[in-house]
Design a protein around this nucleic acid. Structure first.
Lengths: 230, 230
DNA sequence: ACAAAAGTGTTAGACCTACACCCATGG
DNA sequence: CCATGGGTGTAGGTCTAACACTTTTGT
């Protein structure tokens, strides 16, 4: 190609997990360079012949051994030309979710250089990653209210109270249990299962399962998932 | 920089205008290359030291002399590595709106190589631009329902019926006049003005003006613009 | 006087909100 | 039997949806 362009393309991933009332973010400890020892989002340069989403998936696997449950493009950062000290680099940021089970496993087995952090208590981040995280949290909050992505953060089968707590945690406000339950169950996108006794005490909870087929079918008929609720 | 990356970064703009019940899209006739003579979205390579949004603004000015009223990032296309025959090029697409007055002027004065096309009757487009346009139309339709961007497509002062027709045109469905009017006026973000007789016949209409300050003030108090309506 | 577009109210049903007690289990 | 968390109904208010005729102008 004729044109001379000294701009590089990177991808970064903002990946969330949820467990027991806390929202977690996946971070990687930098091994080299200016930010050595600091925490940063997983990501890196796109390789020749590689698509953007493929690059994200590769980086997540290489750097953290994580396979996401949900992944979508968030935003492309490239207005501040000095956002990276190494040169002009634009970064296509992706937003991902992993489910509860994988999160626990990961947190237990992982070495030093990839870790889950409580999203309310993050360390200082490299580059402009803090901005990316903030944008991702906003996106998560708003998506939660008009798409059924909360289920991607829970186990495949979950007690209803987990869903309720998840909404309360992420949206950072109280939710009225009866109204919330009526609304969600009214959608008809959850299937009931057997029972289980979770945390020792208390009445055992029925487990529910998100039925994606039912959701897709309803969606085609013009149905819109939506949760508002003060 | 050490890494060798043969990926180029381009920007493209999907710019809409509205006039008299039609939604228009800005296109540029290609002068060189494989798609010579075909129509394509305004856009091009980002220059060294230039931010993404700045690049879009520059291309719009250079190629069409257009200054947009509203501009936001739409999506970054870069999963299909062969989307451009010249090599691996990712394109950051932006979504823009110009207001009615500028549109008329443009359509009248412009030469051969930039033109407004009825969005319902577009020519074949170069590259993957058709996909970009479809995505932009979806974005426009959904944004119209939860942000007051319709006003960016109208004159500064407009009869209420224009707003109604705009919604009907873009959302491609009938809107109930009384409900729509009550809803919008109820928000308290429009100011009334004098009168005017538009198209000859019919009762003259009161002109309204969007008051952005009032909107911003309400927004801070937790107000959300929203139009649903069958 | 007629054609054309602007303007205007009411009612039934759906949905949202607020609110407090009983149930099933483990210790 | 007590502590813990799960599960349930109702009533008032607000918002949506559906509906057709009158007003003001130009011709």
């Amino acid at each position: 190609m004729k044109i001379e362009q000294d701009i590089k393309v990177a991808v970064d991933a903002i990946v969330f997990g949820y467990h027991s009332g806390k929202l977690y973010l996946l971070l990687i400890k930098q091994k080299y360079g200016k930010y050595q020892g600091h925490w940063a989002l997983p990501g890196g340069f796109v390789q020749n012949g590689e698509g953007l989403q493929a690059a994200v998936a590769r980086e997540l696997k290489e750097e953290a051994g994580v396979k996401v449950n949900y992944l979508e493009q968030l935003y492309t950062f490239g207005d501040a030309i000095d956002r990276d000290h190494r040169g002009q680099i634009i970064s296509v940021a992706y937003f991902g979710l992993v489910n509860s089970a994988k999160l626990k496993l990961k947190a237990a087995t992982d070495a030093e250089d990839a870790n889950w952090f409580d999203s309310k208590d993050l360390p200082g981040l490299a580059y402009d990653h803090r901005m990316m995280v903030d944008k991702a949290i906003q996106r998560l909050q708003s998506k939660l209210q008009y798409q059924p992505i909360g289920f991607d953060l829970l186990d495949r089968e979950f007690p209803f109270s987990d869903l309720e707590k998840l909404y309360q945690t992420i949206l950072d406000r109280k939710i009225e249990r009866r109204n919330f339950r009526r609304k969600i169950l009214g959608f008809g996108i959850l299937d009931e299962t057997k029972k289980i006794k979770q945390k020792g005490s208390g009445r055992p909870a029925v487990l529910y399962k998100f039925n994606n087929q039912k959701y897709k079918a309803l969606e085609k008929k013009g149905f819109h998932f939506e949760i508002k609720y003060a």
